[in-house]
Amino acid sequence: MIPDFEYAFYVWTSYGIFAAVIAWQFIQPQLRKRRIEAEVREERALQTGSYE
């Protein structure tokens, strides 16, 4: 299944770094969006006094 490479450590570490950075680029905006939305909701709840 997993191909057996010469220099396997270098190849897999490289691909690992690539995958990790791309994944971070995907996840970080999602987390930030969720945080901003939560803050906006909280602020509005404080103003209107209605917690749903």
Binding site: F5, E6, Y7, A8, Y10, V11, S14, Y15, F18
Partner: peptide, 9 residues
């Protein structure tokens, strides 16, 4: 050998 595969990223 296989180390050139790093080229693709």
């Amino acid at each position: 050998s296989d180390s050139f595969r790093i080229l693709y990223i």
